[in-house]
């Protein structure tokens, strides 16, 4: 058996080479890394793993085994670093990756859409039928504020207190609010779906009641003119966020033939492209809402744009990426 000193002398050069290669990889910035930097990393690493087990089994000193362990950890970290080609991944994502990941969850998407649109319709009809229902669903104060906001006598449509704000301010406001809601709908799904279901139904009741009540008041041009443009990406994105949330919850409720933890980890991984897509759709909606929805275009044009966006959004989600195989 080699004693430790001979062993160290034999491999010292390799360890130093590996160390300097690792230092290079660790210090370099992402965009400066070249493929040639780690050309012999795998070989050196595999040899190092063997030398480490030898050192352990021969009972060499901890100073040596710790040093080798430290090198292994660093090499392992570099070797298994996930190299993302951002542009390529984005192209794949928009070119169908998002839509096909979503279509794989069509059952949960249907459930989430029903959880949102059924309360919307029911509460919309009831609120249009009677103001009492509108008050029940959103409270008299909220109703009053809405009436103020969409009153055709106003010259601009903004939430109360924000009438005179610039478009940029409103853009930031819608981003922070609406995308934040999407992310909450998603995350709260981990509570066995309860959070996602609650947010979907709650928003459905609220939006439905507002629409029904304002329609009954005859504020058609202001209300529908304002919401038409951004309604498609925003409402569909909300349902998509709900879908991602339900994926987390269903993994816990019905894990199948795997542990709950494993089911959850897998579901969360699959849900990531879906929630990112929902967030981006809502970003798009916020842009429309801030820069288009409040303008003074004729009512007809606004409705046409709104309907066109509904058709385009659904067509994109239903068709993009079909016929291609997507991985990960």
């Amino acid at each position: 058996m080699l004693n430790q000193q001979v062993f160290e002398q034999q491999y010292e050069k390799d360890w130093q080479r590996l160390d300097s290669a690792l230092q290079k990889l660790e210090s370099r910035r992402l965009w400066h890394k070249r493929a040639s930097d780690n050309i012999d990393l795998p070989t050196l690493y595999a040899a190092l793993c063997q030398q480490h087990s030898l050192a352990l089994s021969r009972g060499y000193s901890h100073a040596l085994t710790n040093r080798l362990h430290d090198l292994i950890v660093r090499a392992h970290h570099q070797l298994y670093k996930h190299r993302a080609h951002v542009l390529e991944k984005m192209m794949q994502f928009f070119g169908g990756g998002f839509a096909s990941a979503l279509r794989a969850q069509y059952k949960l998407l249907t459930v989430a859409s029903l959880l949102f649109f059924v309360p919307t319709l029911v509460c919309g009809v009831l609120a249009a039928y009677s103001v009492d229902f509108a008050d029940l669903f959103m409270g008299a104060r909220q109703r009053f504020m809405l009436e103020q906001m969409y009153d055709p006598a106003n010259d601009s449509i903004r939430p109360a207190g924000l009438e005179s704000q610039t478009n940029l301010y409103m853009f930031g406001y819608y981003i922070a609010n609406n995308i934040g809601i999407d992310f909450r709908v998603f995350a709260s799904g981990i509570m066995y779906c309860v959070g996602s279901v609650f947010f979907l139904v709650f928003n459905g009741i609220h939006i439905g009641a507002a629409a029904g009540h304002l329609t009954a008041l005859g504020y058609n041009e202001t209300f529908w003119g304002f919401v038409a443009g951004h309604s498609a990406p925003e409402l569909i994105a909300l349902c998509i966020s709900g879908t991602a949330g339900l994926m987390l919850g269903m993994a816990l409720i019905k894990p199948g033939r795997q542990t709950r933890r494993l089911a959850l980890t897998r579901a969360a991984k699959n849900a990531v492209p879906i929630i990112i897509g929902a967030g981006l759709m809502t970003l798009f909606a916020a842009f429309i809402e801030a820069y288009w929805s409040a303008n003074n275009m004729p009512f007809k044009i606004k409705i046409i744009v709104g309907v066109a966006l509904w058709v385009l959004t659904i067509a994109y989600l239903a068709l993009s990426g079909r016929g291609k195989k997507h991985h990960g």
Binding site: M170, I175, A176
Partner: peptide, 20 residues
Amino acid sequence: ADNGYAFFGIFLIAQFLLNW
């Protein structure tokens, strides 16, 4: 003035980004 609150929009976006 009319553009006085534009920077608050950027503030809100920054807050959103920092938060999430």
